[in-house]
C-alpha cells in the first residue's frame, strides 16, 4: 500500500509558499507534513495532506503546476538503528531511493519516513513483505 504526496512547482519569488498554504486552507485540506527541495531558481514543495486529489484540483484551478506523486510512508521505530533497519530492507529489495524525508504525527511515538521510489507499488509490496509497517495518510 502506498500513499500520495502533493508536489507543487514554486517559482523563486516571495510569498509563493504562503499562497499555496492559503489555497489549501480555503479548500479544507489539512497539511500533515511539508518539505521543500530547492534549486538555484525554483523550488518543489512536497506536502503530505489528508485530501490529495482535492488539494491538486484547488492548485490547478489557481494555475499552479502540481501533481499527486506516489510515495511510500513507513513507520520508523524510535530507537538506535531504527532507520538503518528500514534501509537494509530497501537495499535487499534492490530499490533505489529518489529522495526521502521524515516527519512525525501526533499520537505516535514512532517517526514517519517518506520515501520516493520509481515504482511505489512494487516498493511498498517489498517493504511490507520485509515486515515494515507501511502507513497510509488520508484517503
Amino acid at each position: 500500500m502506498y500513499t500520495k504526496q502533493l508536489s507543487v512547482f514554486l517559482g523563486n519569488k516571495p510569498g509563493r509558499l504562503l499562497e499555496v498554504c492559503r489555497l489549501l486552507g480555503r479548500a479544507g485540506v489539512d497539511i500533515k507534513a511539508a518539505n521543500i527541495a530547492e534549486s538555484k531558481d525554483f523550488g518543489i514543495l512536497r506536502l503530505i495532506v489528508d485530501k490529495c486529489d482535492e488539494a491538486l484540483a484547488a492548485l490547478k484551478a489557481a494555475s499552479f503546476s502540481a501533481e499527486c506523486t506516489p510515495i511510500v510512508a513507513v513507520e520508523v521505530p524510535d530507537r538506535p538503528g531504527g532507520l538503518a533497519q528500514i534501509l537494509e530492507a530497501i537495499e535487499k529489495a534492490g530499490l533505489n531511493i529518489e529522495y526521502m524525508y521524515g516527519f512525525s504525527i501526533r499520537h505516535s511515538d514512532d517517526a514517519l519516513m517518506v520515501f520516493r521510489f520509481d515504482d511505489a507499488e512494487n516498493a511498498s509490496k517489498a517493504l511490507a513483505a520485509a515486515g515494515i509497517c507501511i502507513v497510509t495518510c488520508g484517503k
Binding site: E38, S39, Y99
Partner: peptide
C-alpha cells in the same frame, strides 16, 4: 513557464529540462 505537462516532483528532472 513550467507547464503541468513537464512538471516533475524531482529537482533533477526539472534541472535536466532547463
Amino acid at each position: 513557464e513550467v507547464e503541468q505537462s513537464f512538471f516533475s516532483d524531482k529537482i533533477s528532472k526539472l534541472e535536466a529540462l532547463a
